[in-house]
């Protein structure tokens, strides 16, 4: 088992009713697996609607998560 922290921003934070949440995941679990099992029902958008980072570096959905990782779920940006 591994414990990771997920960060949510913009409307993703609204839908998750919070900006930070911890998850216990199985060894070798990917972002995509965590998304499908734990996030998709609440975020109510397909995985393709988001970008991801792990420990503040961009990461694709096949990235394996490790104990202590900080995953960010990143909706389309709108700065400027």
């Amino acid at each position: 088992m591994a414990k990771i922290t997920a960060l949510f921003f913009s409307y993703a934070a609204d839908r998750m009713s919070g900006r930070r949440r911890q998850f216990d995941i199985g060894d070798g679990a990917t972002i995509e697996e965590l998304f499908d099992q734990a996030l998709a029902p609440t975020l109510r958008e397909p995985i393709g609607a988001f970008m991801f980072s792990v420990n503040a570096d961009w990461a694709d959905r096949k990235t394996v998560l490790h104990d202590g990782d900080e995953l960010a779920v990143i909706p389309p940006v709108s700065g400027g």
């Binding site: 609607a49 980072s53 909706p75 389309p76 709108s78 700065g79 400027g80």
Partner: peptide, 25 residues
Amino acid sequence: IKERVPIWKKERWATGEAHWHHDPA
């Protein structure tokens, strides 16, 4: 910056509502 930097804006409408830009809802 507008295309790539993870920053988000929420519009505060004159009606009192507020919405995030790019929210599919």
